[in-house]
């Protein structure tokens, strides 16, 4: 554990709290992508299957349980008490529509879930169920934020807490990269290219967002995506 990894984890943890605080405070989930949240739930459920058979530290175990339960709570809220404020029209991917309003969304399944699973079958750290699901979760996490970013792209501007949420998740990924560089130079056998490549791709997806978020903060202006 180093300061970069710890800060990254804390930002990740804060991101859930920001989102939940916002939804409860405004009694609304407007601007939040249900698709991204469901994808994150799948990510955590697949990756943390090892809760049942491997123990790293109490810290890791507690965080894993928190990530799964917080995301499950967010998804549950979006499907129940805040359902009426869910902005389904802006949470559509190209290719959705065949299953109008029903889950799982056609576009997400075809463009995101299936490709990630196929990639996991090809590039993994062992051809066994857990390893394939683990690799799948790594790839899926890399692109899980896409529906949320698309939603932001469609609405052009986001509500402050939603932006803060995206910022926290993006910053957490950025800090993980610094953590990997640090580990690479300080640990003897630290080598995980699959995670590094996916992590870098994932972080790059936030680059655009970060740029406009920073501009808005710097100028004290409203966050607005171009054209």
């Amino acid at each position: 554990m180093n300061i970069f990894r710890l800060s990254g984890d804390m930002l990740h943890l804060i991101s859930f709290l920001v989102l939940m605080y916002r939804m409860r405070g405004q009694r609304s989930c407007r601007g939040v992508s249900l698709k991204s949240q469901i994808l994150f739930l799948i990510v955590f459920c697949c990756r943390y299957l090892d809760l049942f058979f491997s123990f790293v530290s109490l810290y890791n175990t507690m965080m894993k349980i928190f990530f799964i339960s917080a995301t499950a709570t967010i998804v549950y809220w979006m499907l129940t008490k805040y359902r009426s404020s869910y902005d389904m029209d802006n949470d559509k991917l190209h290719g959705d529509g065949s299953f109008m309003g029903h889950l799982p969304p056609h576009g997400v399944l075809g463009y995101i879930i299936v490709p990630c699973f196929l990639l996991a079958l090809i590039w993994n750290e062992g051809f066994e169920a857990f390893e394939i699901l683990w690799a799948f979760s790594i790839y899926l996490e890399a692109v899980a934020i896409l529906p949320q970013l698309f939603m932001l792209q469609k609405t052009k501007e986001g509500e402050a807490f939603t932006l803060l949420y995206i910022f926290c998740v993006g910053a957490y990924r950025g800090l993980y990269i610094i953590n990997w560089i640090y580990r690479y130079f300080t640990e003897k056998h630290y080598w995980q290219p699959l995670v590094w490549v996916s992590g870098v791709v994932q972080t790059l997806l936030y680059a655009d967002f970060f740029y406009y978020y920073w501009i808005a903060l710097r100028d004290g202006a409203k966050f607005q995506l171009p054209g």
């Binding site: 750290e125 062992g126 630290y190």
Partner: peptide, 10 residues
């Protein structure tokens, strides 16, 4: 072992 070590992150 090393495999476990690779999965010590979240």
């Amino acid at each position: 072992d090393e495999d476990d070590k690779a999965k010590d992150e979240l």
